[in-house]
Simulated assay, not measured.
Amino acid sequence: MASVGGVWAEVVGQDRVVAELAGAVADPTAMTHAWLFTGPPGSGRSVAARAFAAALQCPTGGCGQCQSCHTVLAGTHPDVREVVPEGLSISVSEMRALVQIAARRPSSGGWQIVVIADADRLTEGAANALLKAVEEPTARTVFLLCAPSDHPDDVPVTIRSRCRLVPLGTPPPPAIAAVLAARDGIDEETASWAALVCGGHVGRARRLARDTEARMRREQVLALPLSLRGFGEVFSAADDLIGSAEAEAADVAGSRDAAEREALSVAMGSGGTGKGVASAQRGAKAAERELERRQKSRATRSQRDALDRALVDLAGFYRDVLTTTLGASVPATHPDRAGDTRRAASTWSPESTLRRLEAVLSCREALEVNVKPRIAVEAMLTILYRG
């Protein structure tokens, strides 16, 4: 069995999962052609799948040092393809193209591997295209699917029944703090704080520990519950939440969008001469519209992901208030906001706190079904104000 080091070092706080996956790499009889990695956000579903893919292609089972390990983890291995939806869903055309490639024989590694990072975003057509491939796989093809759960709302039962389930749990704070300190060079105090307030999300812990703006956004969100003293604050807070999400999405997309537009311009013959330039430029408008569509979809997804992170923080605050009111002996989601939590618990009834918590969760659900963000957020904040 491979050691816990190598490619497995990135899989934080999941010793049981690492042992199972490393065992499958070492023992061909333990392998299967389709795996479903489930777990809450930040548990490391796609990280575990990627490490597994690297270990399968590695001559020594996941050393983390060879060319195969490096290229898989970098996303450049010719026999490993990872689907990370940039928009709101994974289309049927994208999945059909991927399935065709997956049916080929491996060119350099031992396996042809497909990693689907958000299988819960498959459209119905895409799921059907994937199902056929999973039902009749080629001998050296492996599908690694990642989703929040194996519930039919996330993964169709027909696909789930053909996969080996790998459930991941929420990594404990000490494990997160240890990896932040050892791998990212973050000081012990900051690493411990980030691990405690990240909600078990390793990526979020890293952002909070290293990004001043991420910490400021969190502070602004957690200041909201006790700052709503009138409807003026409600609409102002809605502007702030949505504006912050838009700004965060724009920061993520800015340089990438510009680079994609520049690359397309060159590909379409901008500044060139010769016989092929005119025909290439005739197709440029259609290509530009398609690029704009993809970038817009990606920006929408990024904005909603940023807004959802804020809602998760808010839900954690109201959860802390409720547990404080009821005297429950459970770890706080936001231990650094204990003063605000006690203040709110002394003012709000358990019923009003629960209504506020339900309003936040309902807002998350509304955004998932494409309700306009401003409408959903203003409705939520009205309930947060009224209680």
Results as ranks from 00 to 15, higher is better:
169 G>F: 00
235 F>V: 15
267 A>E: 06
250 A>H: 06
341 T>S: 11
320 D>P: 05
171 P>H: 08
36 L>P: 01
284 A>G: 06
14 Q>K: 01
295 Q>T: 03
332 A>Q: 15
323 T>P: 04
72 V>H: 14
102 A>K: 09
193 W>M: 10
308 D>A: 09
77 H>Y: 15
339 G>W: 11
34 A>Y: 04
106 P>Y: 10
105 R>S: 14
47 V>Q: 11
9 A>S: 14
223 A>K: 14
19 A>H: 04
189 E>A: 15
271 G>N: 03
194 A>F: 09
67 Q>G: 13
257 D>R: 00
99 V>C: 12
357 L>F: 09
122 L>T: 03
282 R>T: 12
33 H>G: 10
326 L>W: 04
114 V>Y: 04
335 P>N: 09
148 P>L: 01
199 G>D: 08
303 Q>R: 13
312 V>K: 03
224 L>D: 12
242 I>G: 13
30 A>I: 03
58 C>K: 11
354 L>S: 11
41 P>W: 02
72 V>T: 14
197 V>H: 09
362 S>D: 15
339 G>R: 15
25 V>D: 09
270 S>G: 09
268 M>Q: 05
44 G>E: 10
28 P>C: 13
312 V>D: 13
292 E>P: 08
112 Q>E: 10
182 A>L: 06
349 S>W: 07
105 R>L: 07
158 T>C: 01
98 L>I: 07
221 V>A: 12
338 A>L: 14
64 G>D: 01
381 L>H: 13
111 W>D: 09
302 S>N: 12
83 V>M: 13
71 T>L: 05
161 S>E: 01
151 H>D: 07
312 V>W: 07
289 R>P: 01
292 E>V: 09
245 A>Q: 10
295 Q>P: 02
189 E>H: 12
335 P>C: 08
147 A>G: 00
309 R>G: 15
344 A>V: 09
197 V>Y: 04
227 S>I: 10
155 V>I: 05
216 M>L: 15
269 G>W: 00
52 F>I: 02
349 S>A: 08
265 S>C: 01
202 V>P: 00
321 V>I: 11
196 L>Q: 15
20 E>M: 07
310 A>H: 10
336 D>I: 09
146 C>D: 03
287 A>V: 00
11 V>G: 02
32 T>A: 12
166 V>W: 01
261 R>S: 06
254 G>T: 00
131 L>G: 05
36 L>C: 00
301 R>Q: 07
331 P>W: 14
163 C>M: 02
357 L>A: 08
143 F>N: 04
51 A>K: 07
367 L>V: 04
252 V>T: 11
307 L>P: 12
226 L>P: 07
232 G>N: 11
97 A>F: 06
47 V>G: 11
332 A>C: 09
277 V>I: 06
150 D>S: 00
285 K>H: 08
348 W>E: 10
175 A>Y: 12
3 S>K: 00
237 A>P: 14
329 S>R: 15
92 V>L: 07
288 E>V: 03
291 L>I: 11
255 S>L: 04
132 K>I: 05
67 Q>D: 14
164 R>T: 05
35 W>Q: 01
220 Q>E: 14
296 K>M: 07
238 A>P: 13
93 S>D: 15
94 E>N: 08
